[in-house]
Design a protein around this nucleic acid. Structure first.
Lengths: 195, 195
DNA sequence: GGGGTTATATAGCAAGCGCTACAGATAAGG
DNA sequence: CCTTATCTGTAGCGCTTGCTATATAACCCC
């Protein structure tokens, strides 16, 4: 055990609470007061454990990203491009409307608008979304090489399309769209694969 | 001419400047200082002319909405559902990447995240996006009645799909997507109509 | 020119922001 | 026990926010 007075809260649990607040309010919308209240601690404990607001956000983002990445990986592991797209969009619909956590997508919420001080956060989120899109693109390239995607298909364009639909679905979810409505959007988008 | 000292600035021009700031920074990201600087006036002039920050935003939003509505109306006036969707998405791609104004869509930017005080703004923007979607839906219903949309088509689902793609495109545009990339997304989305 | 009315510029308010100094509390090592 | 090290709670710092009190300037009507 480390020397000194031990911390009186569970850092992982506190991080989950912080993620919930950021998820609902965005990076700038979440105040230190909101966060400490949700985490059940006082400001000095927060700063001692996580550095500052940006550090806390980055650690919470890592937790969020694990959720999102597992979703993505599961989809990319499907055997065909069509199955990948299906799993991606319908899994996303389920995720966005899951009652266990706030509606919408943290990276989309936080990435759009900000005062100047949050520019680096916006950059970070943009980077992560680009990474996701690149993962889909590479998977579709492979599908084309393997022949389960037609020879005249355009993997980068398809990947961007899927990423765009997912981002749009996040906006819809944040505006109150239901699971059923999101699934219908997903099904409609998938028709672009059948054409 | 009204009695009293005349105002020394053009309210319409000032409103355009304010719109530009809100468009780039969002409702909360735009400070009174940003706004007054861009508008070339001092705070008391702003408050005398527009009430408060929220009032200024609503008036700027009305200007923005005129741009967006004219785009929508032009698309909805096309003779067939397919042509409507084409015009909608490609017009939107052009709009989002127009170098004459900031990238992205004001209603999407402002609508996602906020501190509590901006809740009513978020509600207003949600309402406007819902209105747009409803306009598309009604046009597609008409197309179905008129027979240029197949009998098994689902106008509400198609309208939601189009709105979702448009919102996703706004996110992409805000993240730096080019006109060409957005047009390719639009083209891919349109394949859902051909299926 | 004087009175009334409205805009302007300066300057600063109260409130909320992210963050921290400080003192007290709780542990380990001696 | 005392010392050292770390965490906790209170209280408040400096700064920015949206907004405004006040005094002055510019216009119309008489």
């Amino acid at each position: 055990m480390a020397i000194g007075r031990p911390r009186a809260f569970d850092a992982d649990r506190a991080l989950d609470r912080a993620l919930d607040v950021f998820w609902r309010k965005g990076y700038e919308g979440a105040t230190i007061c909101d966060l400490t209240e949700a985490m059940g601690i006082n400001p000095p404990s927060l700063y001692a454990a996580f550095g500052n607001k940006e550090g806390l956000f980055r650690k919470a983002l890592d937790r969020y990203w694990r959720l999102r990445t597992s979703l993505l990986d599961e989809a990319l592991a499907q055997p065909t491009a069509r199955r990948v797209a299906e799993r991606l969009l319908h899994g996303w619909a389920k995720f966005l409307s899951d009652p266990c956590h706030p509606k919408g997508c943290l990276t989309v919420h936080g990435a759009l608008v900000s005062g100047e001080e949050a520019d680096c956060i916006r950059g970070e989120l943009e980077k992560r979304r680009a990474t996701s899109q690149a993962g889909i693109r590479e998977r579709l390239k492979r599908a084309k090489r393997e022949g389960d995607l037609s020879a005249d298909a355009d993997p980068p364009a398809l990947a961007r399309f899927l990423a765009t639909v997912m981002e749009g679905m996040a906006v819809q979810a944040a505006s109150g769209a239901s699971r059923k409505e999101l699934d219908r959007v997903a099904a409609t988008a998938l028709r672009a694969f059948d054409a």
